[in-house]
Design a protein around this nucleic acid. Structure first.
Lengths: 128, 128
DNA sequence: CGGTATCCACCATGATACTG
DNA sequence: CAGTATCATGGTGGATACCG
């Protein structure tokens, strides 16, 4: 990453100067459309893998799995396996995940006001 | 994107059924780390191209140009050229852009509470 | 200084197939 | 139904060079 000398200048605490590195990594993780969409949809209710896939629409099996794993790893989503046959796996937002969803809702709400299109995303209620 | 027949099936109103398509495109545009970071940093103040580049840190010349163009195209950022030598180009958030920044701030605030790291991103005040 | 164009490596993504 | 693995490929993004 490039130099950011102004930071050291602004912040007397050198430790804090580059503290954002980890935050940025996670930020980069969740700052992609699938992750945000997943969080948004899971905010409605707990869902099974297949439900989530159908609701979101257009996401591949692979991407869904991958993003869910990442979100789980970052503590935003909880995964519950019911060892039945066929298997039943449910996903739900953790407290942290739900807090993030609230923030994401802000972005969705924003689209309703400012999107230069006749219609905007509908979030939290409806399918989006 | 793949077919999304399930939506038409779920929603009785065919018009609304696919209304999200444009919104999703724009959502997909801004749901990437560079766009969000740019919006966040521009929220602090109007900046020149180079300033923005330095402040954000780690963004390539190309990505910054590309994202700024996209944001301008979507009406979130305004570009002002001062035809001096050397050229001076300033970027500032539009009203819509600032509204989005407010939403993004929510995400930043979230990191302070829930990030599983000792430190979180600092936004809107400070550098992030 | 800011913008554009070109080249290229790499990774993210989708499709497919197989397992439990 | 849910997950994993593999493969091909198209796009993303970095580096570089040159223009105004």
């Amino acid at each position: 990453m490039g130099t950011r000398t102004e930071i050291a200048a602004l912040d007397p605490n050198a430790d804090l100067a580059r503290a954002d590195s980890l935050a940025r990594e996670i930020f980069a993780d969740i700052a992609n459309k699938w992750a945000l969409l997943i969080i948004e949809f899971l905010g409605q209710r707990t869902m099974r893998f297949g439900e989530l896939r159908d609701e979101i629409g257009g996401i591949s099996h692979k991407m869904l799995t991958q993003n869910l794993r990442m979100l789980e790893h970052n503590g935003l989503v909880e995964r519950t396996v019911h060892p039945t046959i066929p298997p039943r796996v449910e996903y739900t937002l953790t407290e942290a995940g739900d807090a993030l969803r609230a923030a994401v809702d802000g972005m969705c709400g924003w689209t309703q006001k400012f999107l230069p299109s006749p219609r905007s995303m509908r979030c939290s209620r409806g399918f989006m």
